[in-house]
């Protein structure tokens, strides 16, 4: 093995050093992983594109670190709804069971359940199925119908009895009952 070089002490530039301003500017450049939390409709999405390129081009060994950065962004103070959706869509590309607890929390709210599914649908892990089943009783209307569709597409027969009950529940809106009926048909057809 090559011998490690001794750590170099950080350079301290004098007031008159012409490179000082340049370095300060460089250091002050925003961190794309922080900026994605601030995304909004119509705003500059350059930092989002940078993160997206990094996520897409990451080697498999680099993905856990990127997943951790995405989860940090998901927990960032001031996270916008657009930023949240963006992070979820990045997790859809490289997310693993590790992101399920944080994202599953978003499943419990009609306003954020779609974004959560955007992250979780692609993750083939039983933890996602459990999270989806757990959210069934928390959501309503279109968000619930969308969740039911995801459950059916994943082929989770563990949700079958709950879906049969929803199909027959007159108190559920038509969208939910129809989604449940189609899910039951799909899940039973596979058996």
């Amino acid at each position: 093995m090559a011998e490690k070089s001794p750590a170099r002490p950080p350079r301290v530039r004098s007031e008159n050093d012409p490179f000082r301003a340049y370095e300060e500017q460089f250091v002050a450049s925003p961190d794309p992983w922080a900026e994605i939390a601030k995304l909004d409709h119509g705003s500059d999405r350059t930092f989002g594109s940078t993160v997206r390129a990094m996520v897409m081009n990451a080697e498999p060994a680099q993905r856990p670190a990127m997943e951790a950065k995405l989860l940090a962004a998901l927990a960032a103070p001031g996270l916008t709804p657009v930023g949240q959706l963006f992070v979820c869509r990045m997790l859809a590309l490289i997310g693993t069971a590790k992101c399920v607890p944080a994202v599953a929390a978003l499943l419990l709210d009609n306003a954020t359940a779609d974004a959560a599914r955007f992250a979780l649908d692609a993750i083939e892990d039983p933890a996602v199925d459990a999270a989806y089943r757990g959210a069934l009783g928390k959501l309503g209307g279109n968000a619930k119908a969308g969740l039911i569709g995801s459950i059916a597409q994943r082929g989770d027969r563990g949700a079958l009895e709950a879906l049969k009950a929803m199909q027959a529940d007159a108190k559920e809106p038509a969208a939910v009952r129809t989604a449940a009926a189609r899910a039951v048909e799909r899940l039973t057809a596979k058996s």
Binding site: M56, P60, A92, L93, I94, A113, D114, R117, F118, D121, A122, G141, N142, A143, K144, A145, G146, L147, I148, G149, S150, A152, Q153, A175, V176, A179, R182, A183, R186
Partner: peptide, 19 residues
């Protein structure tokens, strides 16, 4: 390529679904 496979489809906003 696992990432490419995830790009073969998309999630849909509720209530829409391919099911």
């Amino acid at each position: 390529d696992a990432v490419a496979n995830r790009m073969r489809g998309r999630s849909m906003r509720g209530p829409w679904s391919l099911v």
